[in-house]
Amino acid sequence: MTDLLRVEGLSVEFPTARGVVRAVADLSFALGRGETVALVGESGSGKSTAALSLLRLVPPGTGRVSAGRVLLDGEDLLALPAAALRKVRGARVGMIFQDPMMALNPVFTIGAQIAETLRRHAGMTAAAAEARAIELLRRVQVPAPERRIRQYPHNLSGGMRQRVMIAIALACRPALLIADEPTTALDVTVQAQVLALVADLKAELGMAVLLITHDLGVVWETAQRVVVLYAGRKVEEGPVATVFARPGHPYTAGLLRAARWQEDGGRLAEIPGTVPSPLALPPGCAFAPRCPLAVARCREARPPSQALGRDQEAACWRAGEAPA
């Protein structure tokens, strides 16, 4: 199976007053057709920056992609002219965000915003676009869609806005959906609805999903493969079931332990310390200062990614030694 999306050596830099921050450093991963891959990390891990830069959505003037290729069906999105890239966005790749108000324009009706996408990318007439907008809203389980298309984003609840944004993202049946923390702002019952909806649509349209999240529970329930980021670098990648059962990197292991609240009420296993400042990354492995397994070598040289078993890899000198 050929990959739908291949990210190769992606680096994103942000110049700041106190030096250049490498938000994403040398990130590579691939996404097969119809597959869900989760990009996992804490705040500052670079996961959202990575997702935005795939479609060159990092605001110009703030940050820039300094290296790497993003191949969608073999075509490098980073080298594409602006006009061609616009055709990719919204048509072949849909995107949803944590805050739907980022994607929805408050001064236009819901219907107008869905129709806009359809008319631009699918060349539909106004009447056809409206009919399709109603159909799409029904598909994402928005009740009374005929009435909703005349409403504005502020008339809707958070869950409804999220659905409208999904409807827009899916309007042109994209091959890839990039979902940046799509359920972080939602309540658990609404989160379950939205995740179930994405799963249904994925099965129906055969699209692939790149899910950016910090919630390992969501990863477990929705993704096939997981890429773990720490301080801008990939520290581990592999099938969800394998990684969760036998994490290769001590950071992944720590995250998993911290996310598994023991019900006996005993002390939780914590990862000591805090995420390092991107301006003052430690010389060797960025996780070394917090790592229970760190040895002298970890503080001196950055560990390369090494294979563990068939499709699991971890960037750790002591990969595989982490207690699960």
Binding site: M160, V188, D215, R260
Partner: peptide
């Protein structure tokens, strides 16, 4: 419904209840 909706690591896939409808 609330406790079932919370994603849980280790829960076998496909065993989650159908989520509540509506807001």
């Amino acid at each position: 419904a609330l406790f079932a909706a919370a994603p849980e690591i280790g829960r076998p896939p496909g065993t989650a209840r159908p989520p509540l409808s509506g807001d």
